[in-house]
Structures are given as C-alpha cells and as structure tokens.
Measured scan of single mutants.
Amino acid sequence: AQVHVDGVTYDFDNPEEAEKFAREMAKRKGGTVEVKNDQWHVE
C-alpha cells in the first residue's frame, strides 16, 4: 500500500500500517486523508 504525503510516496507491505501512518500524518498536519485507487493521500 502506498501513502502520499506532500509529494513523497511511502511504501508499506501492510495496508493496516499504511492506514495508521496516513491517519497519524494527517493528524500532525491538521489535514485530511483520502483513499484513491487503494492509495492513501494525506492533504
């Protein structure tokens, strides 16, 4: 699973880890999390 944050792509073998990371980053940035094509996007 991939997580996109500020133009940087992070690869995770485990989708749950990807989701956890995406939500944590969004919380830190005060942003939102979107899922597109099985990829997490932190805005």
Rank of each mutant, 00 (worst) to 15 (best):
K27F: 03
V33D: 05
D38H: 11
T32A: 08
N37M: 10
R28A: 14
K29A: 12
E24R: 02
V33W: 01
E24Q: 06
G30N: 10
H4E: 09
H4T: 13
D11M: 14
Q2S: 12
F21N: 03
A1L: 14
G7R: 01
W40P: 07
N37V: 08
R23Y: 13
K20L: 07
W40E: 06
K27N: 09
T9F: 07
E17R: 00
V5I: 13
V42G: 04
F21V: 03
H4I: 15
H41P: 05
H41W: 15
E34S: 15
G7E: 03
A18F: 01
D6F: 10
A22W: 07
M25V: 12
N37E: 09
F12W: 00
G7P: 00
E43V: 15
V8G: 02
E16I: 10
V8L: 10
N37I: 07
W40T: 06
Q2F: 07
E19D: 08
A1R: 13
A1Q: 12
D13F: 03
V3M: 02
E34Y: 14
N37F: 11
F21A: 04
G30F: 07
V35S: 08
D11H: 14
K20W: 09
F12T: 01
K20A: 13
E16G: 06
D13Q: 08
Q39L: 07
T32E: 08
H41R: 10
E17T: 04
H4A: 06
E19I: 03
K36P: 04
G31Q: 08
E19N: 02
E17V: 03
V35N: 09
E16D: 11
P15H: 11
V8Y: 11
E19Q: 02
D38I: 04
D13I: 08
V35K: 14
K20H: 09
T9M: 10
T9E: 05
V8R: 11
G31E: 07
E16P: 00
N14E: 06
E24T: 01
G30M: 08
T32S: 10
Q2I: 09
A26L: 02
F21Y: 05
R23M: 11
T9K: 08
H4W: 13
E43T: 15
N14V: 03
E24Y: 03
F12K: 00
E19T: 00
D13A: 10
E34I: 15
A26W: 00
V8C: 15
V35D: 05
K29V: 15
K27E: 13
V8Q: 11
E34F: 14
Q2T: 12
F21W: 07
V42M: 05
E34P: 04
T9Q: 09
Y10E: 01
Y10P: 03
Q39W: 06
G7V: 00
Y10N: 01
G31F: 09
T9A: 07
D11A: 11
R28E: 12
P15A: 13
E19V: 00
D11P: 08
V35Y: 15
V5M: 12
F21M: 03
R23F: 11
A26Q: 07
V3G: 01
K29W: 14
W40S: 06
T9W: 13
K29F: 15
V33Q: 04
E34G: 09
K36F: 13
E16L: 08
R23A: 09
K20Y: 06
Q39N: 10
M25W: 02
N37L: 10
D38A: 08
K27L: 06
T9Y: 09
V3N: 01
D13E: 11
G31L: 12
D38M: 10
N37W: 07
M25E: 12
E17C: 15
V42N: 06
D38V: 03
N37P: 06
D11Q: 14
V3Y: 00
R23D: 13
R28D: 09
V33I: 10
D11L: 14
V35L: 13
A26P: 00
D6M: 09
A26I: 05
D38Q: 10
E43D: 10
G7S: 03
Q2W: 08
Q39T: 10
V42H: 06
H41A: 09
V5E: 02
N14K: 04
V8D: 05
V3A: 02
V35G: 10
P15N: 12
D11K: 12
E24M: 07
K36W: 13
D6V: 03
F12S: 00
V35F: 15
K36A: 09
G31A: 10
A18K: 02
H41G: 03
P15L: 12
G30I: 05
A22D: 07
F21H: 03
A26Y: 00
F12P: 01
K20F: 04
D11I: 14
E24W: 02
G30K: 08
N37T: 05
E24P: 00
N37Y: 10
A22Q: 04
E24N: 03
A26E: 09
G31M: 12
F12H: 00
M25K: 00
E17H: 02
W40G: 03
H4Q: 08
M25Y: 06
H41L: 11
E16K: 10
P15Y: 12
Y10S: 01
G7K: 02
Q2M: 08
V33N: 05
N14Q: 04
K27H: 07
D13G: 06
A26R: 03
V42W: 05
H41C: 15
D38C: 15
A22I: 06
T32N: 09
F21Q: 03
K36M: 10
K29Q: 12
E34A: 13
A26N: 04
A26M: 03
T32G: 07
P15T: 10
N14H: 05
Q2E: 04
V8A: 08
N14W: 03
H41D: 06
D11N: 14
E17N: 03
A1H: 14
A26F: 00
G7F: 01
E19H: 02
D38R: 08
G31S: 10
G31P: 03
Q39V: 14
E24F: 01
K29N: 13
G7Q: 03
E24V: 00
V8S: 04
R28V: 13
Q2Y: 07
V33R: 04
V5D: 02
P15E: 11
D38L: 11
G7Y: 02
Y10D: 01
R23H: 13
R23V: 09
D13H: 04
A18H: 00
V3E: 01
P15M: 12
V3W: 00
V3D: 00
V35T: 07
N14R: 03
A22V: 05
D38G: 15
R28S: 13
H4R: 09
E34Q: 13
Q39E: 09
K27M: 07
A22Y: 06
G31N: 06
D6Q: 05
T32L: 09
F12L: 07
F21R: 03
P15G: 08
F12D: 01
Q39I: 14
R28Y: 08
G7D: 05
D38T: 08
V42T: 07
E24G: 02
Y10V: 04
M25L: 11
A22G: 01
W40H: 07
V8F: 12
V35W: 14
D11T: 14
N37R: 07
T9G: 02
K27A: 13
Q2V: 10
V5N: 02
A18V: 01
R23S: 08
E16N: 06
E43Y: 14
V42R: 05
M25N: 04
A1V: 13
A18S: 01
P15I: 13
E34M: 14
K20T: 06
H41V: 14
A18E: 02
K27W: 02
Y10K: 02
R23P: 08
Q39D: 08
F21L: 03
E17I: 05
D11V: 14
A22H: 02
D38Y: 06
T9S: 07
M25F: 02
G7I: 02
A22K: 06
V33S: 05
W40M: 08
K27R: 09
H4P: 01
F21T: 01
G31R: 08
M25S: 04
R28P: 04
Y10T: 02
V35H: 12
D6T: 01
A1N: 13
V5R: 02
N37Q: 09
E17F: 02
G31I: 11
V5W: 08
A22N: 02
N14Y: 05
K29G: 10
E34H: 15
V42K: 05
V35P: 04
G30W: 06
A18N: 01
E19S: 00
D13K: 07
K29L: 15
R28T: 12
H41N: 06
G31H: 12
Y10F: 10
E43S: 14
M25P: 00
K29R: 13
G30Q: 08
K27G: 08
E16V: 10
V5A: 05
R28K: 14
R28L: 15
V33P: 05
K20M: 07
H4V: 15
K36R: 13
D38P: 07
Q2L: 10
A1P: 11
H4L: 13
E19K: 00
Q39G: 15
E17P: 00
E16A: 11
A26T: 02
N37K: 09
